[in-house]
Design a binder for these strands. Structure first.
Length: 271
DNA sequence: AGAGGTACCTGGCAGC
DNA sequence: TGCTGCCAGGTACCTC
């Protein structure tokens, strides 16, 4: 479900309910997420004030007076803001209760997500240190992508989805950005020239910005913190459109598998 | 060191 | 209707 725009949408949604708020309590109903949830987490966050929230890649960093929560939504995670009278459902694994009487409720059916805890600077945490550059920052630019692409022998779609190169470009937006840049996903990254790297960088930023502005993409079960879906889905030009006609040229959209992930492209618009 | 495959887990859907 | 198999937005970790 969540790629960078969905994570950003979630972060912006929960921030007003958490920033400068005191944590009245934490409830963990299922500790078996991607990594076991710290057995002492409830005690560690209890009574603390949230001092900052930010995003790094697809991780949400929630800073408290002492220590930091590192939250990841995995493939199927979502967070909503509710009131305590609403009963948790089957896959609602974690609740953060604020002193103001809000429940920040984490749902994750597949449990690929994470709730990690660190006392150190979260930027130094092993899950964060190895992340590549932020795609929406100026450090991600055509020179950077071009240089990285010269060092590797993978397909270009695999390169832009490699979180140690650039973090946050997931499967949907990778296909979408490659279409807008006119680059085939299966092209060897070392064969993508500088001009195409430039277009690709621009397309990635454009697509992510646009998706954030529309509240993310909802395919099956992504909801914003109010439970409403995102509206980027109608903006998808190739993802999930196998055998349908290209909006640009009318050719049939093709599906190929790259790195075990479905990839969509227009054989005429993309070389 | 880099590339590619596997694993984690549940639910939805197509096909029979 | 019910079963089976496949697929899904991510990414860490294994082997070669």
């Amino acid at each position: 479900m969540p790629e960078l725009p969905e994570v950003e949408t979630t972060l912006r949604g929960i921030e007003p309910y958490l920033i400068n708020q005191r944590i009245a309590g934490l409830t963990v109903r299922n500790r078996h997420l991607r990594w076991p949830v710290d057995a002492q987490l409830e005690r560690k966050v209890q009574g603390q004030i949230v001092t900052a929230l930010r995003r790094r890649g697809k991780y949400i960093l929630i800073s408290l007076e002492q220590g930091h929560l590192i939250v990841h939504l995995g493939m199927s995670g979502s967070i909503r803001v509710l009131t305590p009278d609403i009963a948790p459902q089957k896959h609602d694994h974690v609740d953060l209760l604020t002193a103001a009487g809000r429940v920040i409720r984490y749902r994750d059916p597949r449990r690929f997500g994470a709730w990690l805890w660190t006392q150190q600077n979260p930027e130094q945490h092993v899950r964060i240190t190895n992340l590549g550059v932020e795609p929406l920052q100026s450090e991600f630019n055509s020179e950077y992508l071009y240089q990285q692409s010269r060092k590797r022998r993978v397909k270009i779609k695999t390169l832009i989805m490699d979180g140690s190169i650039v973090t946050g470009v997931g499967n949907i937006y990778a296909s979408e950005a490659l279409f807008r840049a006119g680059v085939r996903p299966g092209r060897g990254c070392y064969r993508v020239n500088f001009a195409a790297c430039q277009r690709l960088v621009d397309s990635i930023k454009l697509v992510l910005d646009d998706a954030i502005a529309k509240g993310g993409t909802t395919l099956q079960d992504f909801t914003a913190i109010d439970g409403k879906p995102g509206y980027f889905r109608q903006m998808l030009l190739v993802y999930g459109r196998e055998k349908q006609t290209c909006y640009e040229c009318g050719a049939r959209i093709r599906k190929v598998v790259i790195g075990q992930r479905a990839s969509f492209y227009c054989p005429d618009c993309q070389q």
